[in-house]
Write a protein that binds this DNA or RNA. Sequence first.
DNA 1: GTCTATACGATGATAGAC
DNA 2: GTCTATCATCGTATAGAC
Lengths: 214, 214
Amino acid sequence: MSPPVTKQRILDAAEHLFARDGYHATSLRCITQAAKANLAAVNYHFGSKEALLEAVIVRRLTPLNEMRLGQLEALMQRAERSRRVPSCREVLRTFVEPTLRQRQKDSETGDFIALIGRTLAEPRGVAMTIFMRHMDPLMIKLFQALSLALPGLSQQLLFWRLHFAIGSLSHIMRCHERYSLRPEDVNIDLPVDELVELFLDFAAAGMEAQRWSV
Amino acid sequence: MSPPVTKQRILDAAEHLFARDGYHATSLRCITQAAKANLAAVNYHFGSKEALLEAVIVRRLTPLNEMRLGQLEALMQRAERSRRVPSCREVLRTFVEPTLRQRQKDSETGDFIALIGRTLAEPRGVAMTIFMRHMDPLMIKLFQALSLALPGLSQQLLFWRLHFAIGSLSHIMRCHERYSLRPEDVNIDLPVDELVELFLDFAAAGMEAQRWSV
DNA sequence: GTCTATACGATGATAGAC
DNA sequence: GTCTATCATCGTATAGAC
């Protein structure tokens, strides 16, 4: 079948260009040209530029969140059966590992994770509402799981530290940049498994930190 | 004198609007209208939209970096005199505290810190080069200081963890958002001193974390 | 149903007259 | 220093070909 191919090509081109240049800096003309489609095809298939962005995000975010939710629920069930609380690191892993694995696949699938990282940083109203609508259910479960894993932490502290951790993750999600402060021997293209552990070392320790006062 | 006032007003308006809506989503017409100036005044005073962005950034980043560098050097001198190495937390504080204090002043001065947070997230080529040119000297010194504070860490590990920490910071720098996962009793408008300590708890513990394997 | 060609109003940045 | 004129390009809407 030929018809669905056009829609796919537009999604692929949009994903790549939105991720590379940002939403506002990418024109529909540029997208349709890359997709070898007509300008009006975007409006026909998606309705508007913003609806196209949502379609780009949803296409990959839905399976990714299913993966993350599945791993989190599996962890919680294992923990319950063995009558113990999951560790902070285990909980974080259910979120981080699928994320960074998707990032590895981006060489084939486009630059979805970089796009998400950028979207997280864009002003609200553009894609923030789109994003939060699809993330909130998972985030609430993640918050609850961390509450269990870190019973000594107040809701207030947990809230802030979770956002510190999310900030770290979203930063490396969009970092294809080359930092000039990088020493010669630093390997920036780390295998994903190593990067996951490196990140979990940092984030779990940060989440579990002692408070500076009382 | 009347002439320099126009330039100031444009800078103020641009700072506010770039921070609120992002660089690409902000029009020069919108800026000049808010500044009660003519559209072409931007080109006259700054040369282009991108040069205006650079002027906006440099105006505040220069004194901020002087403050950060001053505090870092003072710390290193104190440490040397007392023949001890500075703690990771102390080093990070010289960077973080001036940053978040500037954020507090933003109600008067515009939304500079939010703008920086956003700029850090934008695609390279827009303002990344501007930003890196002004940050690199400081970042190199910060990296060296952390090397001293954390002698057990390899350059590779230090590189990654520093970027995790920067990611956390840049995330809260641009977070005026309201997260729906926020529990009722969480105070999002924390006093800046508390936020600094909260962040340092997290970041210092993350930097000092044990490695997961060897 | 899918897709194309084309047009419209709004806005981008800039050059040159004043 | 300021303002007007200009032109490319933006997102969107529509009419009609396949």
